[in-house]
């Protein structure tokens, strides 16, 4: 491959640094990853310089985070920045590793928010959402309700 080809090759990039996109994506699924403090066990999204809980400077263990989690709390955003479709369910999702992630949740009626959404099981999926200034595809992690739960 010439240098020119490398420079112009379209890439697939994650929207957030804690979403890992394997080389063989989409045949191999993207996943959320984090860092676990070996001193106190606290898990963070993405990489860490030191632990906010115990101030240990590491080492940190890279951990693959669960694709499934549950809704801790949410809001339904109706008024938002120009160009976005609203309303959307903006939730805080608890993952099994003890770390939370912000997410849009689909499969719920945004016009009927309900306390029944607390604890609802949700599953992550990825989707191309935009193309950036350099022409790269931007991939995001979204969550949808797991049916029947």
């Amino acid at each position: 491959m010439t240098q020119e080809q490398v420079a112009t090759e379209k890439k697939i990039k994650p929207l957030v640094p804690f979403l890992k996109i394997p080389d063989k994506y989409p045949d191999e699924p993207a996943y959320l990853w984090g860092s676990k403090c070996k001193s106190c066990g606290t898990v963070y999204l993405g990489s860490r310089i030191a632990c906010a809980k115990c101030a240990s400077t590491g080492p940190f263990e890279e951990v693959r985070l669960s694709d499934e989690g549950e809704i801790y709390v949410f809001s339904v955003v109706h008024q938002t920045v120009p160009g976005l479709e609203a309303p959307y369910v903006a939730a805080i999702i608890d993952l099994a590793e003890g770390v939370a992630v912000r997410a849009n949740v689909y499969g719920l009626d945004p016009l009927n928010p309900s306390p029944q959404w607390f604890g609802k099981k949700v599953k992550m999926y990825t989707e191309k959402i935009r193309v950036d200034r350099e022409g790269n595809d931007v991939i995001a992690a979204k969550f949808k309700v797991v049916d029947g739960k």
Partner: peptide, 29 residues
């Protein structure tokens, strides 16, 4: 920043009304 990388409305919200909405919803829970 390249606005293509805004996570607003895709991966939850960082807008103040939503953030404080969640604060209230936590109290509901």
């Amino acid at each position: 920043r390249d606005p293509s990388y805004s996570s607003e409305g895709v991966m939850g919200t960082g807008l103040m009304p939503g953030v404080f909405g969640q604060t209230g919803v936590e109290h509901m829970r």
